[in-house]
Design a protein around this nucleic acid. Sequence first.
DNA 1: TAGATTGTTAATCGATTAACAATC
DNA 2: TAGATTGTTAATCGATTAACAATC
Lengths: 272, 272
Amino acid sequence: MSDQTPAAGRFSGDSAAGGERSTGAPANGSEPRNIPDATVARLPVYLRCLVDMAETKTVTASSERLAEMAGVNAAKVRKDLSYLGSYGTRGVGYEVDNLIVQISRILGLTQDWPVVIVGIGNLGHALANYKGFAARGFRVAALVDADGSKVGEALGGLVVRHLDELPQIAADEHVAIGIIATPAPAAQDVADRLVASGVSSILNFAPAIVTVPPSVSVRKVDLSIELQILSYHQQRRGFAAIADAAAHSGSYGAVPEVASASQVDVSRAADA
Amino acid sequence: MSDQTPAAGRFSGDSAAGGERSTGAPANGSEPRNIPDATVARLPVYLRCLVDMAETKTVTASSERLAEMAGVNAAKVRKDLSYLGSYGTRGVGYEVDNLIVQISRILGLTQDWPVVIVGIGNLGHALANYKGFAARGFRVAALVDADGSKVGEALGGLVVRHLDELPQIAADEHVAIGIIATPAPAAQDVADRLVASGVSSILNFAPAIVTVPPSVSVRKVDLSIELQILSYHQQRRGFAAIADAAAHSGSYGAVPEVASASQVDVSRAADA
DNA sequence: TAGATTGTTAATCGATTAACAATC
DNA sequence: TAGATTGTTAATCGATTAACAATC
């Protein structure tokens, strides 16, 4: 754990993988197996596609169809799903309902995960009001802020409590996941408090790198970093357009920064 | 382009890389070079660390120091920075101010990027009020919503306009980057409209995969996916604790789902 | 000069992908 | 049986990392 996403990692962010050796052990009951990080990051995407399919009464899905919906290639889908076990039928495909069950089980979505949101600013408000949590088994159990003037505020059926109460709240509510939605300077302190309170998974929205013990998972969602990555590619297109225009002595008219290039090809952006 | 981050991703999310062949060409003026996706995703992180250093009047930074702040290893920092050119001094380190200039230039941050936010719900409000944009050269140029009842609302110094006006707005404001903050069902339509309006970089916050032409970059920020990845690792720790408790016939008391394991080791999470 | 630190090489590792035998 | 599609293998590719010569 202890990695910083990103986007890109991934991250996307980032993306360090480490530790375990994959054994390729077959699926069996509810035992944990070693699934590559890149695969784990795609399982929620497949799950969402399968749920969409189930809603339109689709009974089976081929790797080809699932790949198309998920925006990846079919070989990757089959390889990814093979880590879960053999849940497909040759010549037929995967049974949608069963695959939903299997992926949910592997991801731990069959249980409830109480979440605490720390930092009730603009983003904290948006998160507290977000309806998508409950649908996936993530229950917002508490809202916390260091600012006394915010304590007591009612929001999304909860009342904001003080950061100092975090250890008590975490214990009472069995909080497993903490979301940091504070300004950057507060992020490390909040992460330390979360860890001290027994929270071992953290989703960090603050534009700061937080350091945690190796037994804790951190994922980072960083708007500025995503925009800067887009800026890089956007700028690259601009250069390509200029090079192209120069080469052809032509004009691209109204949108000078968008064009194709022969020399510098337009690549896919990184993520994960 | 056309990849879906992730977070796994950047996933990261996701993380597909493709297309171009790296030539290892040296830095020279403002020419675009081929920088690996994984490196591009880390440059904004280094930039943030360097800006923090500059604020505390640090003049030079070694790869070791920068690595520590960024949460990566020093070899990676040196390799990443080597793609920009040779801006370090052996035996000394990197000059902080100069490196800020070089990374900013490579990322295209020396110019202004007008941004349009589509979807003014909870998240859209939070984004519209976010102060971190301007600081990095991302100027919110327009706010747009499909809901007529939101049109005309004043927010963060702007007035919300109707989605149908997007082509005009994009042209007038030279919008380069579109942020999708709508509910999932609207995301693909909005992406299509952005592309049709000439926007070639998209940051998608909606929990949906959007498909765009190859010349357009998409990065995905998906809260549910990040939480589900954390859930996987959290669950894994739970299994590990159980296996460990069984092996030692001991009790872990109040937090049964957290412990270390011999058999199933706890790995780092993916990201990118 | 001695110490420090970069920039680069080469080994290693993990992820992707095409191909195809297995089999429904 | 014929057609379709999985599950797996093996090749390839990109990213990470340790090591060290270059050099300030």
